[in-house]
């Protein structure tokens, strides 16, 4: 029974931490560290209040802690453990302080939105070109001529891809054109990288503004050839 409150409190705190960190993300998005910290602070506060409601429970709670820290009558492992705690605690505080005050020498974090919202006039357009084998073939020919230097064999690994950051899109990846409607792809080809809104970081994109060089009809054919070549289907409104 001795030390029971303390032990139970410690087990409860660890249990709640594991629940917040591991179990909860199975049902919802992972919690930010700051939120977990707030929940744990509330838990510890609650345990301390509960443990100090009476003089007896206060002694049961703080007794083991103060006996451990004062070090009286300790031998062997307990003595070493106490010494370790007394050395590690100031070092931990020092490390925390250092890492929170040290200036960062890393480049600024970039939160580039990969598929930002398109302008209104590009929402809900449908491909006006009939999906015939001839048109798909023509689209693949245009793709080979204009797109493959960067986008390669639909995999984003063309011979001109290496110097560009962000890298050219890989259309075989299920996270690119398979997630997008044809009208979205039409916008991205027609207006190119410079047509992106600010969250898409247009200043870094090497995607040409193809409206300068290609007709709309050619762009729609390229889209057809691109989906066929990458073995993907455009997303549609269900």
């Amino acid at each position: 029974m001795k030390g029971g409150v303390l032990l139970k409190g410690a087990i409860l705190t660890v249990g709640i931490y594991l629940f917040l960190k591991l179990a909860l993300p199975l049902f919802t998005a992972p919690l930010p560290a700051s939120l977990i910290f707030i929940y744990l602070a509330l838990t510890v506060t609650g345990i301390v209040i509960f443990a100090t409601l009476s003089g007896q429970s206060t002694e049961a709670f703080f007794g083991p802690i103060s006996r451990f820290l004062s070090g009286e009558g300790q031998t062997g492992a307990m003595k070493t453990a106490r010494l370790l705690v007394l050395v590690l605690f100031p070092l931990l505080v020092g490390w925390q302080t250092y890492s929170s005050t040290a200036p960062s020498d890393q480049p600024p974090a970039e939160n580039r939105t990969i598929h930002p919202a398109p302008p209104g006039e590009f929402v809900g357009l449908s491909n006006p070109i009939p999906n015939t084998p001839e048109n798909v073939m023509a689209g693949k020919g245009l793709f080979a001529a204009f797109c493959s230097p960067c986008h390669g064999n639909f995999d984003g690994k063309g011979p001109a891809a290496r110097g560009f950051s962000p890298p050219p899109a890989n259309f075989v990846d299920p996270g690119t054109i398979a997630q997008l409607q044809e009208s979205y792809v039409f916008w991205r080809i027609k207006n190119g990288g410079v047509g992106l809104p600010i969250e898409g970081m247009p200043w870094k994109s090497a995607m040409p503004r193809w409206e300068v060089e290609l007709k709309d009809e050619q762009i729609w054919k390229i889209i057809m050839g691109e989906y066929d070549g990458a073995h993907q289907k455009p997303r549609t409104w269900e």
Binding site: F89, P90, L91, V93, G94, W95, Q96, T97, Y98, T101
Partner: peptide, 9 residues
């Protein structure tokens, strides 16, 4: 700052 924090702790 870290040395100061170690001293305080």
């Amino acid at each position: 700052y870290a040395a100061l924090a170690v001293g305080l702790a």
